[in-house]
Simulated assay, not measured.
Amino acid sequence: MDILNLLHLPLSTLVFYAIPFLIALTVIVFIHELGHYLVARWCGVDVESFSIGFGREIAGWYDKNGTRWKIAWIPLGGYVKFKGDANAASLPSGAAVEQAKLDPGNFHGKPVWQRAAVVAAGPSANFLLAIVIFTALFMTVGAPVMEPRVDEVLPGSAAERAGIRKGDIIVEIDGKEIEDFSQLQQAVITRAGEELTVVINRNGERLSLPIVPDLKEEPDNFGGKMRIGLLGVRNNPGGPVQYEQMGPVQAFERGMERTWFIVSSTLGYVGKLFSGRESADQLGGPISIAKAAGDAASLGVFQFVTVLAFLSVSIGLINLFPIPMLDGGHLVYYAIEAVRGRPLDEAAQEWGFRIGFSVVIMLMLVGTWNDRVRVASVWMGG
């Protein structure tokens, strides 16, 4: 289902898309903020509030430590407010740092390494959530088992040009051992236009072939298109896919591998974006994310939690970008403080947060604009 079709659905169906989106976002935000909260408590920081959502409070309660846990009207994020914060972005309240140090529960009076640990805990919790989800899936449902054997070479493909034949087994790509066909796909998906060294096993003989994956646009789960690298080979086309359950250690290793693949792919895209080799039209907005969550939920729990893990990694990684207002921006400030021996003055931090807020809003607008462009493209038949 494309994004435009969402506009023609009955309200009950639109709610079906909204609910999985809100569930996914709430889980991801809760885990992210819980990471901040737990490490802050470990460091002796007083937490004034833990909010899921923004705006007016719907419901809330105080725990034994005096923290106000609440749910707010706008369910598009959340925050943890520490003692000494002037706002939800953890900007200092204006009290002198030396004065803050006299209060053992004041976040801004803590050593810089503790503040950095508290800030980094949020994105780290998102990565951990994804690893746990992938590990659980590999242990229960299993991972697809497909020998990296070439059962079909597509005509005119990069594989055909390089001399790969039916029956070849791909055992290595650029020095990385390939044990499963899915690893083969991951090794080339972000390497379109780059020359790779592919080692194959052909009737017991190892051959090394240079190959340049073709660039192809494929529909993504967010209503747009993604540019991927393809060799042009297929494994067991049309045949059933076998799944093999893994033990805890192997499943954990594969979960870490899958999480790192999402991180490296995203960083690769960002690098190409800044170098002009990629376009910003692949960024998605809230409509795209809601569509992905709704489509995944309609296919079952496995697909939904997989998208949940993907979004968790993405949100964790985005929060680590060195943009003031995001966690990564705070970490940059703390790195500067560690080098200088004192924090930046409040005016510099305030201007940094204003710039960071503008950048975040701009990225949101780009994603929303891309959603509109995709709707218009479908409307015009493009």
Results as ranks from 00 to 15, higher is better:
I3Q: 12
L4T: 07
L4K: 14
P10Y: 02
T13D: 04
L14K: 09
L14F: 10
L14E: 04
F21Y: 05
I23Q: 05
T26P: 08
R41K: 08
I52G: 11
I52S: 14
I52N: 12
G55H: 07
I58L: 08
G60Y: 15
D63K: 11
G66I: 03
T67A: 02
W69Q: 03
W69P: 01
K70V: 06
A72G: 05
A72N: 09
W73F: 12
L76P: 09
G78D: 11
K83H: 03
A89K: 07
A89G: 07
S90D: 06
G94L: 00
V97G: 07
V97Y: 01
E98M: 00
Q99H: 03
F107L: 01
Q114M: 03
A117N: 02
A121G: 06
A121T: 03
P123L: 00
P123V: 02
S124H: 04
A136I: 10
L137C: 11
V141R: 09
V141G: 11
P144W: 05
M146E: 15
E147M: 15
D151N: 05
A159L: 08
E160H: 01
D180S: 05
F181L: 08
E194I: 03
L196C: 06
V199I: 03
N201C: 08
R202T: 00
N203Y: 10
N203V: 11
G204N: 04
L207Y: 09
P210D: 10
I211Y: 06
P213A: 05
L215H: 12
L215G: 10
K216V: 15
K216Q: 15
E217K: 03
E218P: 11
K225I: 13
G232T: 12
Q242R: 14
Y243D: 11
G247E: 11
R254G: 03
R258M: 14
T259G: 10
T259K: 13
S265M: 14
T266K: 08
T266D: 04
G268N: 04
Y269I: 01
Y269H: 01
V270L: 07
K272H: 08
L273P: 12
G276A: 04
S279V: 01
A280T: 06
P286K: 03
S288Y: 13
A292C: 04
D295P: 00
G300S: 06
F302Y: 10
T306I: 10
S314R: 11
F321P: 04
P324I: 02
G328K: 03
G328H: 12
Y333A: 02
Y333D: 00
I336E: 01
I336D: 02
E337R: 13
E337I: 12
E337F: 07
V339Q: 05
R342I: 06
E350Q: 12
G352P: 09
S358V: 15
V359A: 08
I361E: 07
I361F: 11
L365E: 08
G367L: 09
G367I: 06
W369R: 05
V373W: 13
R374P: 03
A376F: 14
W379L: 11
